[in-house]
Design a protein around this nucleic acid. Structure first.
Lengths: 146, 146
DNA sequence: AATGAAATTACGCTGCG
DNA sequence: CGCAGCGTAATTTCATT
């Protein structure tokens, strides 16, 4: 497959913790030169292991305090591509997961308030071939930090 | 609460697209000086709007091709903190979401293969006060890129 | 209070061994 | 992979509105 060694994994780990880490800092951590670390990161990008870098945002602080998952069921003729396209259009949709079995999709949503959430769910239900939804309200979450 | 203006939002958007963008590049985009953009980013970090930066990884390319959500139900006496702690221990657990109602938690998992996934689910079921699980296998996903 | 310009420091990048 | 040199970016300071 792809040959990624332990040093690559350590570099990835360091970048997961802080995606803006400097090469110099990582070089010290893994005991290589700055150039060597840069070459590894470049290579991981070319391999497609690293798909990008991004900022982590506290959406609640931006006034988007509501978070939910909505399970969606579609009529049997609906294709995966169609599901993805429909749902991923809305700005409130964080991620669309297509699922094997039941439900057909799981959509991660963010909204300003409950009213806004209801509006988004209504839009999802209206779009085409949806037969039903079930929404799970998220109270909190914890991602692995280390 | 927090005053975040349109320029801040544009900077956040630029950092969402590429978390390693230079201040110079963003400065040109938003029509401010490099120093002004840096100060805004620093301020957004202090406000807690920006919680960090990270790398986006194609886990399948690292041999973790299996992705799933597992809904978990607990006995009535189980507290939220306990749920978080138990589940977030495992390295296969990406994120633990606590849910209002039924189920009690939704856990985003990654594993190397189906056998590995089953092993992880068994561990979750064993840990303490779990009364039942239902696992949704993820076939694909699409996050909002723009 | 937030900005831009300038100066200093640090880092990114490339070619060569 | 490391080293070295040059260009670019980050960061701090200072002056301005």
């Amino acid at each position: 497959m792809t040959d990624v060694d332990d040093t690559d994994l350590r570099v990835l780990q360091l970048l997961r913790e802080d995606g803006r880490r400097t090469y110099s800092e990582m070089a010290q951590e893994v005991g290589l030169s700055v150039a060597a670390v840069k070459r590894r990161v470049d290579r991981l990008r070319e391999l497609g292991v690293i798909t990008g870098f991004t900022v982590e945002i506290d959406h609640a602080k931006l006034g988007w305090g509501i978070e939910a998952f909505t399970e969606i069921r579609y009529v049997g003729t609906t294709g995966v591509e169609e599901i993805m396209r429909d749902a991923a259009e809305l700005p409130e949709v964080q991620t669309v997961f297509t699922i094997a079995g039941d439900p057909d999709a799981l959509v991660h949503l963010r909204a300003r308030d409950i009213g806004h959430l209801q509006q988004v769910i209504d839009q999802l239900r209206r779009s085409g071939t949806v037969t039903g939804t079930k929404t799970l309200m998220i109270l909190g979450s914890r991602s692995r930090k280390n």
